[in-house]
C-alpha cells in the first residue's frame, strides 16, 4: 500500500498528464462518431456569443453580395409563383388554400456565424437553436444549394455538419434520370464533392446536374447540389465521380433550415414496419 502511494506520489505529474490525455482522446473519438452527440462543440453560450460578435463585423463587408443573392432569389421565386398561378388558371381550377393542411416543409431562416471549410471535419455554426424550433438532423440549404445537416443544438445556436465533412452522407440523384447514390467528401478540395454508389447504367456526362434525392426525411427532393465535373470508369464501375458544388462553401451567409412536418409520421411508420 505504501509502495503504491509512493509510486503515485513520485509519478503524479505523469499520471495527471495521462488522465488529461485520456480525456482529450475520448473527446476526439467522440467527435469522430457521427451519431453520438458531442460535448465539445461551438453551439454553446460562450462560443456562440463570441462567433456572433465576430460575424457582426464581417457582415458589413458582405452586405452587397448578400443583397444581390437575395434579389436573385426573389426573382426566381416570383417566376415560380407565376408559373404555379398559370397552372391553376389553365386547368380552370381555383387555387386551393393549403395553409395548415398540406404544407410539408417549413423553412427557418438563419445566419451563419462561423464557417469552416479547410479541415476534414468541417462544421458550421448558425445563430438559431431550439428556441426557433431547430432540432437534430434537419437539412440546411441556401438559394444555391445544400449546405449540411444540423448536428448539435443549444438554446440559441446550432452546429451544422457541413457537406464538407468526411462523415457526411446525403442521398442525391441525377436530375435527368432517377439513378441515385450518396454524396460524400474526400477532404481534398472544398469545391469538389464525390458521388458514391452510382450504378454505371446511369451513363453520366460531364456537366449533368445533381440534386437531392428525397429518399430521406432530411432534404426534400430537388434541392440543387452541383454539376458533374469528371469521372472515371474501371471494371464497369465508376471509380470516382466528382461533383462541382453550386455553392462556394467558403462564401456563404444566410441559410434556411428545413423542417419536415411529416417526419415523425414517416419515422413511426418505418419503425413499425421494421418491428413487424
Amino acid at each position: 500500500m505504501q509502495q503504491l502511494i509512493s509510486f503515485i506520489f513520485k509519478n503524479k505529474h505523469f499520471l495527471f498528464f495521462l488522465l488529461l490525455e485520456l480525456f482529450a482522446v475520448y473527446f476526439t473519438i467522440q467527435s469522430h462518431s457521427y451519431h453520438r452527440s458531442k460535448f465539445v462543440n461551438s453551439a454553446n453560450f460562450i462560443t456562440g456569443g463570441i462567433y456572433k460578435r465576430i460575424n457582426n463585423f464581417k457582415e458589413y463587408i458582405r452586405l452587397k453580395e448578400e443583397n444581390n443573392r437575395l434579389a436573385e432569389e426573389n426573382v426566381y421565386l416570383k417566376n415560380l409563383l407565376d408559373k404555379e398561378k398559370m397552372k391553376g388558371t389553365l386547368n380552370g381550377l381555383a387555387l386551393i388554400d393549403t395553409t395548415g393542411s398540406n404544407q410539408k416543409y417549413f423553412y427557418i431562416s438563419s445566419k451563419i456565424i462561423n464557417n469552416e471549410y479547410n479541415r476534414s471535419n468541417n462544421y458550421i455554426t448558425i445563430n438559431s437553436g431550439s428556441n426557433k424550433g431547430i432540432t437534430l438532423d434537419l437539412g440546411v440549404i441556401n438559394s444555391k444549394g445544400i449546405i449540411g445537416i444540423t448536428k448539435s443544438v443549444s438554446n440559441n445556436y446550432a452546429t451544422v455538419l457541413s457537406v464538407l465533412n468526411i462523415n457526411s452522407k446525403i442521398n442525391i440523384k441525377l436530375l435527368r434520370s432517377n439513378y441515385f447514390g450518396s454524396l460524400s467528401w474526400n477532404a481534398k478540395d472544398y469545391q469538389m464533392v464525390q458521388f458514391l454508389d452510382l450504378p454505371v447504367q446511369a451513363n453520366i456526362k460531364i456537366g449533368d446536374t445533381v440534386i437531392t434525392g428525397g429518399r430521406s426525411t432530411i432534404f426534400p427532393e430537388g434541392i440543387p447540389v452541383g454539376t458533374i465535373k469528371n469521372f472515371n470508369i474501371i471494371n464497369n464501375n465508376y471509380e470516382y465521380v466528382n461533383i462541382d458544388l453550386f455553392n462556394d462553401m467558403s462564401d456563404i451567409g444566410y441559410v434556411e433550415v428545413i423542417k419536415n412536418f411529416d417526419r415523425e409520421e414517416i419515422k413511426e411508420l418505418e419503425e413499425k414496419t421494421t418491428n413487424e
Partner: peptide, 16 residues
C-alpha cells in the same frame, strides 16, 4: 477545440 468543433484534438496535442 470548443471553437473549432474538433473534439479534443488540440487539447491532446498541446498537453503532449
Amino acid at each position: 477545440d470548443f471553437f473549432s468543433n474538433s473534439g479534443g484534438i488540440n487539447a491532446a496535442a498541446t498537453l503532449f
